[in-house]
């Protein structure tokens, strides 16, 4: 897929989420499903963007570009969950149900005790819940016995009983890891939210005057802005590199790096905004709450650090460099997770 196509997809997503997200967030805050925003999203076909090109999509990088835009506008919709559930269904040779999909993965305690799944994003509003189980099983269930919960940003995170037989069941190919894919998807959303936090903070620092000059003229503030930009850039680079390399190491590193950056960026964005940014009225919290919520979902940075730190030691010190180079190079490892590599 060409860079031009990729830009077009991201622009379409950006325009859509820019137009729909504000009203949709207000609806969700009242406990309502933002049906209008969902229909507008569904009409674009962007939920299929991450599928391989021969399956009607535009590939993993395109899907991540859509998720970046969704994060940039704090779109309160199960975009990542629907997109990744669709991709996993394709990989398992199953038909993805229509409508908004929820997805339960197993990074850190989300899989409950086998009879329930915990903190499943958007379960109450989903037409079906895709559950990644042990040993690569993928089941589809109709949401039932949902106990409603939420993350810090007020996005639905529900517990659900796994009672009765699933509506459909399949097996993911060995090179397709649903938990890692969803972690990468969340990292892409984080990256988008970081961009918006940076943009808002740069704008505020340029407009707000104290001591007779804009905040941005103070070196201490400039250095905060530089640090936010650096953390956001590192997260973005890790996500882009993961989409290119498609190794389990790269996926884990992307989520680890983005989760690590999220807290730093939220802290500094608030520090620069001062008291106005701490109010419910100001928009900043829509993004910082998502940074705080998403960094702990799908495995936080410490979870993935432990995975990476254990992986890194497998060959000893002398093997570290070749391992890191291979992990960052496309085609050296059986395409971790996704799209083009996974056959239906």
């Amino acid at each position: 897929m060409s860079d031009e196509t990729l830009r077009l997809i991201e622009q379409t997503a950006d325009d859509l989420f820019a137009a729909e997200s504000g009203a949709a967030r207000a609806a969700l805050a009242k406990g309502e499903w933002p049906e209008g925003a969902w229909q507008a999203f569904a009409a674009t076909g962007l939920a299929q963007a991450a599928l391989p090109e021969d399956a009607g999509g535009a590939g993993l990088a395109a899907g991540l570009a859509v998720l970046r835009a969704a994060g940039r506008h704090a779109a309160p919709l199960p975009v990542a969950e629907t997109m990744m559930a669709t991709l996993l269904c394709h990989a398992a040779g199953m038909e993805a149900p229509p409508g908004p999909l929820a997805l339960s993965t197993t990074a850190a305690g989300e899989d409950g005790d086998g009879s329930t799944v915990r903190r499943v994003p958007w379960a109450r509003f989903a037409s079906a819940v895709a559950v990644v189980g042990p040993e690569g099983t993928l089941t589809l269930r109709t949401p039932a016995d949902v106990v409603e919960g939420a993350n810090l940003a007020g996005e639905p995170r529900d517990d659900m009983a796994l009672s009765g037989p699933p509506a459909a069941a399949g097996t993911l190919p060995p090179d397709t890891d649903g938990t890692l894919l969803m972690a990468l998807a969340r990292a892409a959303q984080l990256r988008g939210a970081m961009e918006q936090a940076l943009a808002m903070t740069v704008r505020y620092a340029s407009e707000r005057e104290q001591f007779g000059r804009p905040l941005a003229r103070f070196q201490a503030i400039q250095h905060h802005l530089a640090e936010i930009a650096g953390e956001a850039a590192a997260s973005g680079a890790a996500v882009d590199a993961a989409a290119e390399a498609r190794t389990p190491f790269a996926f884990a590193a992307a989520k680890a790096r983005a989760s690590q950056a999220a807290g730093t960026i939220a802290r500094l964005a608030h520090q620069v905004h001062g008291a106005i940014g701490y109010t419910a009225e100001h928009d900043l919290h829509h993004w910082t709450k998502r940074l705080w919520a998403w960094r702990d979902e799908c495995g936080n940075e410490a979870h993935w650090w432990r995975v990476l730190g254990t992986d890194a030691g497998q060959g000893g010190g002398a093997a570290l460099w070749p391992m890191l180079v291979a992990a960052g190079t496309a085609g050296t490892d059986a395409a971790a997770a996704a799209g083009e590599g996974a056959r239906p």
């Binding site: 790269a250 432990r306 990476l308 010190g317």
Partner: peptide, 27 residues
């Protein structure tokens, strides 16, 4: 990484993982 061996205890694995994730992004 050499000193930590193939089965580092979780805190050390975490510290190493943090560095390799950072290096991965920087590279």
């Amino acid at each position: 990484v050499e000193a930590a061996g193939p089965a580092p205890e979780p805190r050390l694995a975490e510290a190493i993982g943090r560095l390799v994730a950072e290096f991965y992004a920087l590279r």
